[in-house]
Write a protein that binds this DNA or RNA. Structure first.
Length: 430
RNA sequence: GCGGUAUUGGUGAAGUGGUUAACACACUGGUUUGUGGAUCCAGCACGCGUGAGUUCGAUUCUCACAUACCGCCCCA
């Protein structure tokens, strides 16, 4: 094989692409119900857009960025996630302007890139569907968006989902907790895994997320961030909980949950599944939260924000596993069988006439025998076949056959050309 | 970035250091000189991921590389 696709990329072929469209269409319809509008931003940005927003110590920035210098020596990075670019666009286009309605609600879907080791549900080019809402720090925004994510999964027929919620509090909360956590972890320093040791001072919250068994034991007794909430932060979280309950959305508070990106504060959440399609244990298919400092970080006015990202590949793996199939929406109304090379022009005219009448039609292009053509028509579940041979050419007729009933009649060719719709209707009823 | 497993035709796969690389499905043609199923017959890998090496000889042994999958790391 001379050429193969780059490591960690995938070809989405017919058969799969329909499922992608189905999921994307479902998202568009539902998000519109929530009055979110689509935004499309570049797939690459200046490196700093991501490094500033995600945090210099985050893994995404330190080792997973797909970056390069272009011919103008600009430091460019393929977007590793959607939020930073949307925030950049929000600021650059002055969408914070007073005449813009707040909150400003957008969604996006498209490819993202991270340089890492491919595995199930993880590739170098992957796709996310995400939403962002700017300009309100109301807990109602948090809950609306979490509810929308759950709503989306429900629409797709997913079950076995777990909504995990936590709060990272405000700046004051984080600082106090940060200190308490470092104080707690430092005596255990030598028992921590190597990774956690290096994280301890750079970003201690990440230690909470360690999968190392020993780390988890140590972390189990660590102070909880929930004990360090300022009154404001606590109130925000309480309201979120109250509203989730009011909407009867099941959730659990997970005080050890953190996010891989540094820009989050207050409410964060993940939607996880334990489907065997994604391996053992729980895997995240949706993650998001509140990022009140991010717009400012990228040069805009102080603006609260809230959003999430859904991993398309993982979502599709789940759907495949559940046998959730996209409705088939491309039936073949008529297959034109041409017998002999001399019918080549007429069959082309016929399929075009049928298509222009608003129906779907196809024909053979390999000069195959009638039997083979009928086989194809059968396999493709054509509703009707229209046969043309030398005799029909001579008499300007066609053999019109219902593949369902097997009945065949002779019709004037003009009936197809003039008004295929009524022919179709007439024989569909029988 | 670190481990482990794998890589044979369009697909699922069997297999051996040495003539023609099983079998099945799919596809194409014929049986039916113009009609969907079934049967039967035939065709279908210049080649066993790529490149080197060992050997009289390698798809089968060794090494490197590539890719996929699994675990770690991390995340969507």
């Amino acid at each position: 094989m001379k050429y193969q696709r780059p490591k960690g990329t995938a070809d989405i072929l017919p058969g799969m692409s329909e499922k992608w469209s189905y999921v994307e269409d479902t998202a568009r319809l539902l998000f519109n119900d929530y009055q979110f509008h689509e935004i499309r931003t570049p797939m690459f940005e200046n490196f700093e857009v991501f490094s500033r927003s995600a945090g210099d110590t985050s893994d995404v920035v330190t080792k997973e960025m797909y970056d390069f210098h272009d011919k103008g020596d600009r430091h460019i990075a393929l977007r590793p996630e959607g939020t930073a670019g949307v925030v950049r666009a929000y600021v650059e286009n002055k969408l914070y302007a007073p005449e813009q309605e707040k909150p400003y609600k957008v969604f996006y879907m498209g490819p993202m890139f991270r340089y890492e080791r491919p595995q199930t549900g993880r590739s170098r080019e992957f796709h996310q569907i995400g939403v962002e809402s700017f300009g309100s720090d109301s807990p109602a925004v948090d809950v609306e968006i979490m509810a929308m994510a759950m709503d989306f999964f429900n629409h797709l027929g997913l079950t076995n989902l777990k909504l995990a919620v936590n709060s990272l509090g405000d700046k004051e909360t984080r600082e106090a907790y940060h200190q308490a956590l470092v104080d707690y972890l430092e005596p255990h320093f030598n028992d921590l895994s190597e990774d956690s040791q290096s994280r301890l001072h750079k970003n201690p919250l990440r230690v909470l997320d360690s999968k190392d068994k020993k780390d988890q034991e140590i972390v189990a007794n660590a102070p909880s961030i929930l004990d360090f909430m300022t009154p404001d932060a606590q109130k925000h979280l309480d309201t979120v909980k109250e509203m989730l309950e009011a909407l009867k959305i099941p959730f659990e508070i997970d005080p050890t949950m953190v996010r891989g990106l540094d820009y989050y504060n207050h409410t964060i959440f993940e939607i996880e599944t334990n489907s065997p399609a994604l391996g053992h244990g729980w895997m995240t298919i949706c993650g998001g939260g509140r990022y009140n400092g991010l717009v400012e970080e990228l040069g805009g006015p102080e603006t609260p924000g809230f959003g999430f990202g859904i991993g398309m590949e993982r979502l599709l793996l789940l759907l495949d596993n559940l046998d959730v199939t996209a409705p088939i929406s491309n039936p073949l109304n008529a297959y034109v069988v041409g017998i002999g090379e001399e019918t080549n022009v007429e069959t082309l005219k016929l399929v075009q006439a049928i298509r222009q009448a608003g129906f779907s039609a196809d024909r053979d292009y390999l000069n195959r025998k009638p039997k083979a053509q009928f086989k194809t028509a059968d396999r493709r579940q054509a509703e009707f076949t229209i046969t043309v041979g030398a005799q029909e050419l001579e008499s300007q007729t066609v053999h019109f056959k219902s593949m369902r009933t097997g009945e065949e009649t002779t019709l004037p060719m003009d009936a197809i050309y003039q008004d295929f719709a009524s022919v179709y209707d007439k024989y569909s009823e029988e």
